[in-house]
Every structure is written in C-alpha cells, then in structure tokens.
Computed example of a mutant assay.
Amino acid sequence: MTRLLRYNLAPTLNGIIASLPHHTTPWIVPDPTIDFAALYAEFDTFVMGRKTYETFLAMPAGENPLKGRSRESVVVFTRDEGKRGEWGGEVTVVGDGGGVGGEGVVEVVRGLKEREGGKDIWLMGGGELAGLLMRAGLVDVVEAAVMPVVVAKGVKMFGEGGGEGDKGEDGWKLVLEKAEALKSGILMTRYRVVYD
C-alpha cells in the first residue's frame, strides 16, 4: 500500500501560511484541545523546505516535534548548498537537482511514498514545495487547521502555481472528508485531493 503524503498546515482563513517578510506565524491561535503528540505519531517521515525547517530549529527542544528523530525521517529541500554541511548530520538535506523547483524533489518524494511499510508522510511546508508536489500529483490529503484570522499578505498555501501545461493549471478538486469547529475558532479540516 502506498503511503499517503499529507499536507498538514495551519493557514489563515484566506490561505496564508506565513507572514512576510520573516516567514513568521504570530497569528496562530493556541488550542489546548489539539493532541499534537497523537498527530505526530501518525507519521514516520517529515518533508519540508528550508524556511520551515529553520522555524523548527528556533523552537525550544521540548516543543520541537523533529527533535530526536532519525536523520532519515526528516527530509529538508533547499537550494542553499551550504545547508547540506550544516545540517547533514541531523536531517536528510536534498539540494542540487533536488532543490525546490528541480525534478529531484518529485523523485525523492515519490520514492518516499513507494517505500514498503511505514506510516504516512507529513508535508510541513512551505507553499512553493507544496505547490510543486501538488502539480506532480503527489499530495494525497490536505489537512488544514484554519485559523480564525485574515492576513493582508504572506506566503500562499501552494505558492504561486506552475507554468503552462502543469497539472493543476485549472486547480484541483478536493473532497471534504472531515470538518470540526473548535471552541477556539479553529476549523479542523481534512480534504482528499482528486487528480484527473
């Protein structure tokens, strides 16, 4: 059975995943009813771009869900080759042709999905990486904890989209599988992505 690639994020109501210019999320609404430990336990591989990983590095060790995980279970895509040496011992850093925008990203993620056994893969961000993987037909599920906030501008959930002829140039159909409104105002949603 193919492992699912699940894009799990906390966007604003208007689809922003980070504020500019520093890629911060000061508008995240805390909710003590969300069981993050149970959520993290559903995954054994975490895929993200450089800026998302740097956000996790800035977290206190006790709050960082990536701390203590095996090098193979955390995959970071970046165009910055210097990060390979800086982070190479802690996480799997994919650069060169595998940097965001290169065919290597698609190949690496496809390979992760095709591995036998294991749990699902958490696509943590960012928007450019998520858009690339959507256009490649690799994102299976979008799980958005929609914050009760609107932000004027920032990083979009799926970046700026692809070039002419890309899958998804007309958008993607999502089928709602779950929706739950929390008292904090957060709307927990799960959508299955439908590709033609």
Rank of each mutant, 00 (worst) to 15 (best):
F36P: 08
I28S: 14
P32A: 05
R71E: 10
W122R: 14
A136K: 06
V29D: 00
R79K: 14
V139A: 10
A58N: 04
K51Q: 12
F56A: 12
G127T: 07
E90S: 07
V146K: 06
D120F: 11
R69F: 08
R50Y: 06
T33A: 13
D44A: 12
E54N: 07
G62A: 09
G82C: 04
V76R: 00
P60C: 06
T92A: 00
M124T: 00
M147L: 14
S70E: 13
E116V: 02
R115H: 09
L39S: 12
G104A: 13
G118N: 10
G127K: 00
V149S: 01
R79I: 05
A61R: 12
F77A: 01
L66V: 11
D96I: 01
W87H: 10
E143Y: 11
A61K: 15
V75H: 03
W122L: 13
V149M: 06
F43R: 02
L129C: 11
G95D: 12
V94C: 09
A38P: 13
L66I: 06
D120Q: 03
P26G: 04
V105T: 08
V47L: 04
G125W: 01
K113G: 03
T55C: 07
A58W: 04
A58C: 15
G82Q: 10
M48K: 05
W87N: 00
L20W: 12
F77N: 03
P60K: 05
N64H: 07
F36T: 08
E72T: 06
P60M: 07
H23G: 04
T78Q: 01
D120R: 05
G89K: 15
G101R: 13
F56K: 02
E116S: 15
H22C: 06
I121Y: 06
D96Y: 07
G104I: 01
G125M: 06
W122C: 09
T55K: 13
A130G: 07
W27N: 08
M124P: 02
V108P: 00
T78E: 08
T33L: 07
Y53P: 01
T45R: 10
